[in-house]
Amino acid sequence: MLKVSEIKVGDTYSEILVKDLKRTQIVQYAGASGDYNPLHTDEIFTTKVAGYPSVFAHGMLTMGMTGKMVTNYVGDGTLKKYGVRFTSQVWPGDTLSSIATITDIREENGENIVELEIETTNQDGIAVITGSATARISS
């Protein structure tokens, strides 16, 4: 868990979320989340009918993987808010890295709060998720 005394605005934390994303993991996420939209798992439908170059990951899979980086940084069960925009699609074969940057540290209603800016990018440096998170931290 983050401590106020050990952090400052501008600090960053990053992780590689996935290397060479496999279609199998997308299938695994479909099963766990219950979202069986064929655009994520059915290559034939997605290329021949829907007109995409291949199946692509659920946005929520990328948000989930990014959430792992966030909770590894701020600590389990400390999030107050977590929100993202899906700015570009994630394809099988992608390698994703995610970075959190501290934008604010404050006290609010007797709690210590940290604000993070979040960005997940692919191997070409294109942002696939941008967002923010708010977490409780200890003094």
């Binding site: 064929p38 059915d42 993202v84 899906f86």
Partner: peptide
């Protein structure tokens, strides 16, 4: 045959409309 959902019924994020653009959680 290559079949799936009709484009109009694609969805994401419970918003029931095409692709998922944004998602926010408050805990």
């Amino acid at each position: 045959e290559p079949t799936g959902l009709k484009p109009s019924s694609g969805g994401g994020g419970g918003a029931a409309a095409g692709l998922h653009a944004e998602q926010r959680f408050e805990y």
